Amino acid sequence: MSSKVLLGAENIDQVAWGAINGCEAASLLEGLHYQGRALDLNYGQFLLQMPISADNNPYHGFGGSPFTNRPGKFEAIFTRPLLWWGNRYGHLQELSGANPQWLYDSVTKGNPVLTFVTVHFEQPDWDSYPFGQVPANNHAVLLDGIDSDQVHVSDPIDGQYWLSKAKFEFIYQTRRMAIAINK
Rank of each mutant, 00 (worst) to 15 (best):
R37D: 07
L41M: 12
G97I: 08
Q45K: 13
G31P: 04
D55E: 14
L41H: 10
F67H: 09
A54V: 12
G97K: 03
G61M: 03
F62D: 07
R70P: 00
I77S: 03
I77E: 04
S53R: 11
Q93R: 14
P66N: 04
A98K: 04
G97W: 11
N57V: 08
G44R: 13
T79C: 11
F74Q: 03
F74E: 02
A98P: 02
E75Y: 08
G31K: 07
Q45T: 01
P81R: 08
N42L: 03
L39Q: 13
R37P: 00
Y34R: 02
G31V: 06
R37S: 11
G61S: 03
G97P: 06
L95W: 05
S53A: 15
L47H: 05
R70F: 05
N87E: 14
T79P: 06
P58I: 09
L92N: 05
A38F: 07
F46W: 12
L83I: 13
Y34V: 01
S53W: 14
Q49C: 03
R37N: 12
P58D: 11
G61T: 02
P58T: 09
L47T: 07
R70V: 14
H60M: 04
L41W: 13
R70T: 15
L39E: 14
F46L: 06
T79M: 08
R80N: 11
M50W: 07
P58G: 09
Y89I: 11
L47D: 07
G44T: 11
P71K: 14
W84L: 14
R88Q: 15
A76L: 03
L41C: 00
H33P: 03
D55L: 06
I77W: 04
A38I: 09
S53M: 12
L82R: 07
K73P: 00
G86H: 12
H33I: 02
Y43M: 02
Q45E: 15
F78I: 01
Q93M: 10
P81N: 08
G36S: 05
T68I: 14
A38W: 07
W85S: 06
H60S: 13
T68M: 07
L95V: 06
F62T: 07
G72C: 10
H91K: 14
S96W: 04
F62Q: 07
A98Q: 07
G63S: 09
G90M: 10
H91C: 09
F62N: 08
F78C: 06
A38T: 08
P71E: 15
M50D: 00
Y43G: 02
R70W: 01
L48A: 15
T79L: 10
H60P: 00
Q93L: 13
N42T: 09
G31W: 04
N69W: 11
L83T: 12
S53N: 12
G64H: 01
E75L: 06
A54M: 13
